[in-house]
């Protein structure tokens, strides 16, 4: 097994990949997410977002006050399409037959 240090296990983003993104001139959470895919897996950043934030602050790449999380869009918990669809059934404008 290759020794790898993971920052985001969902999308297999390693510290080396974060360093590559930093070397490419990126320094904030949103940019690094878009470059590496960090935070885009099933946990949606619950495990990696703050780890990345701490790393950027520790390396003086960004001031803590300037640090913003990426947008926490719904759903923050897994939900089935069935459950979501159930909420639409009583909409009168629902065009389904």
């Amino acid at each position: 097994m290759t020794a790898r240090t993971f920052v985001c296990r969902c999308e297999d983003v390693t510290l080396t990949e974060i360093e590559r993104a930093i070397a490419a001139g990126l320094s904030d959470v949103e940019e690094i997410k878009r470059y590496t895919g960090l935070g885009t897996g099933p946990c949606q950043g619950k495990e990696c977002l703050s780890a990345l934030g701490r790393l950027l602050v520790a390396r003086n790449l960004i001031a803590p006050a300037a640090l913003r999380p990426f947008t926490a869009r719904p759903p923050v918990e897994p939900v089935t399409f069935g459950a979501l669809a159930a909420g639409a059934t009583d909409h009168p404008e629902d065009p389904s037959p």
């Binding site: 020794a3 790898r4 240090t5 993971f6 920052v7 296990r9 619950k46 495990e47 990696c48 701490r54």
Partner: peptide
């Protein structure tokens, strides 16, 4: 709270 990962080799 969430428990973030600690970046260490083979932390997965």
């Amino acid at each position: 709270a969430h428990e973030p990962t600690i970046p260490l080799a083979n932390n997965d």
